Structure formats: C-alpha cells, structure tokens
Simulated assay, not measured.
Amino acid sequence: MSQKVGDRLKAIRNMYGLSQRELARRAGVTNSTISTIEQNRVSPSVDSLAKVLQGIPMTMIDFFTIDVENGEEIFFKRDDLVELSDGTMSMRLVGATRKDRQLRVLHEIYPVGGDTGSKLIVQKGEEAGVVVRGKLEVIVGDRMQVLSAGDAYYFNAEIPHRFRNSGDVECEVVSAATPPSY
C-alpha cells in the first residue's frame, strides 16, 4: 500500500466527522493504531485496513476510489449563489457548479408586486418552498393560496403554476425542485 494510506484515512475520517477515538472504538482497534496509520508510520495490512474501515463503514474499493482531494463544495457563502434574475425578481441558485445535481434550491426575493410572469410554469418533477418573509400568492392549477412567513407549499410541478408577491413588503422564499430545470 502506498504512503498515502494514512493521509487518505485521515481525510475520510474527517469527512465522516469521526474523531480518532470514535473510529478506533467503532472498529475495535486502539486509538494508537489509527494514529500511527494516519501519521504514515505504519502501512497496515489489507486485513487491518479492512477492520478499520468497518468502523466508518466503508469498503476497500470505496476507500481507494473516493475523491478526497477534489470533493464537491458543501457550503456556500452568499456571494457563491448564482443570480438567475430577470430584473423583476431575484432567484439565487445554490450549488450551481455541482456536477450531476439532482435538486434545485433557490433563495428567491420578490419585490412588491413581483411575480414569475403571466405565463404559467410547467416542468417535470416536484416543487416545494417555505415563505421566510412577506406574502406569496401561489397558483397551482385552479387553486390559489396566499402564504405568509412560515407557510409552505409542495406540489407536482407538471401542474401549471405561478408565484406573485401579493403583500406590501418584499417577499423572501427558499424553494427546492427536483429534477433541477436549471
């Protein structure tokens, strides 16, 4: 095994949020075993490494193939969100650069009277959201509801729908849709 086994073990252990002691306890080995492997002072046998990996749990194949150096972003600062605005409202996409995204998460700001347009939206999948502040008029098919802060929606996105700020203050919404349409 390569000199990098210890570095890889440490990175994966940290990725899973485990301390050396916790991994040692789960794997049924001593804390010093984990420590010496991570310091690359010993090169564990296949059996020893397999035993340690049972504490995560993870297969040997996963251990050697998981990309620990170029992991995808997990946390995003406000400035990392991609603005998808058309000028009438703000829609900021979370995780725009994630490869093979399966979910669209938006932080939406509707100015007073702002809406998604006169044309109803139809797309595959499901959509859900929570109003954080203000009032949001949601039309789904022949149903309409005005939602306030703390209220939420969840519907089949193939049903024609639209959103509009029907209040007298800016409206803020956090929404999610699957599959991601953008």
Rank of each mutant, 00 (worst) to 15 (best):
Y182P: 01
T36L: 15
I34N: 06
V42N: 08
E137F: 10
P180S: 05
E108L: 13
D100T: 05
Q39F: 00
Y153M: 11
T65M: 09
G28I: 10
K119R: 13
V169D: 13
L84N: 03
A152Y: 07
A176C: 15
G28K: 13
S48H: 03
I34M: 09
T178Q: 11
A149N: 03
L53F: 13
R21F: 13
F76V: 02
T97H: 14
G167E: 05
S90A: 13
I37W: 02
Q145Y: 07
L136F: 04
V68H: 10
G17Y: 01
Q123D: 05
M89I: 07
N70I: 05
V46Q: 04
M1R: 07
K4R: 13
A176I: 07
F64T: 08
V82W: 00
S19K: 07
Y110Q: 03
D67P: 05
E170K: 11
K135W: 02
I37L: 07
L106E: 06
E69M: 11
P179V: 01
D100F: 12
M1E: 06
A11T: 07
Q102V: 12
S148A: 14
D67F: 07
F163E: 00
T59W: 08
Q20D: 01
C171I: 01
T36P: 00
R78F: 07
G6T: 02
G150M: 01
E158L: 12
E72L: 12
